[in-house]
């Protein structure tokens, strides 16, 4: 294998990177991992509020892939696969006999907990819309929150979401549809309220 400088890794095709990864090139591995690192971390934060645990889980997950690099299939660096693995890792390693599934009936402290959002809200200058959305989100079930997140933030299709969450594709479609409907109707009425409030305060 000829030597490649760090900058040149950026110019390699996915196939070339993949071949180098298989051959034990750790820089190619890093390059492949880098693409998904932030997405993974962000998703991890939806599953647990312990950010250090998320960082650790990502390292574990990727090093597992590295250890099995000679035998793994081609689909390893596909986002949906990585997210699914991370989900499994984080929910599986949750201490104690807590639920492994995101249960609609389970109240707040499970996945999609709000502390990170809360921190952001506390620390940053928030628009009214974000605050409103935060309230709206809290009214959604955990499943709805996750589906929306995977669809919106991770930009995955229903099939991929179904794989990650262990649901039927049709269930994902239904869930998304319902979520949007709720979100939109709430959003519109909230915005209306917001508007009225602004008008009122402006009038004073």
């Amino acid at each position: 294998m000829e030597h490649v400088t760090a900058a040149e890794y950026k110019n390699l095709t996915p196939q070339e990177l993949w071949q180098r990864f298989k051959a034990g090139d750790e820089l190619a591995f890093g390059e492949l991992a880098q693409v998904h690192y932030r997405s993974l971390y962000n998703y991890g934060l939806r599953l647990t509020t312990d950010s250090e645990r998320v960082w650790d889980a990502i390292q574990d997950l990727l090093l597992d892939l590295w250890d099995h690099r000679t035998t793994v299939g081609d689909a390893v660096f596909v986002k949906a696969y990585l997210l699914k693995s991370l989900r499994y890792k984080l929910l599986k390693t949750r201490s104690g006999p807590t639920a492994v599934d995101i249960d609609e009936s389970t109240p707040a402290q499970l996945p999609f907990a709000d502390s990170i959002e809360q921190q952001i809200i506390d620390s940053e200058s928030q628009t009214e819309q974000t605050r409103l959305l935060h309230q709206l989100m809290a009214s959604l079930s955990k499943r709805q929150q996750e589906v929306l997140y995977l669809r919106f933030y991770q930009n995955l299709d229903n099939h991929e979401i179904a794989q990650i969450m262990g649901l039927e594709r049709q269930s994902v479609a239904n869930l998304l549809h319902r979520t949007f409907k709720e979100l939109r109707s709430q959003w519109s009425s909230s915005l209306l309220l917001l508007l009225l409030e602004m008008i009122r305060s402006g009038a004073n």
Binding site: R38, Y41, I58, L63, I116, I120, T127, L132, Y153
Partner: peptide, 22 residues
């Protein structure tokens, strides 16, 4: 609003550090 809602605290420095460690 959603983008703000899903924002995380991962800095570029932290990501680079994690990647280097990996």
């Amino acid at each position: 609003a959603l983008n703000a809602h899903y924002r995380d605290d991962a800095t570029d420095e932290r990501l680079a550090q994690e990647l280097a460690q990996l």
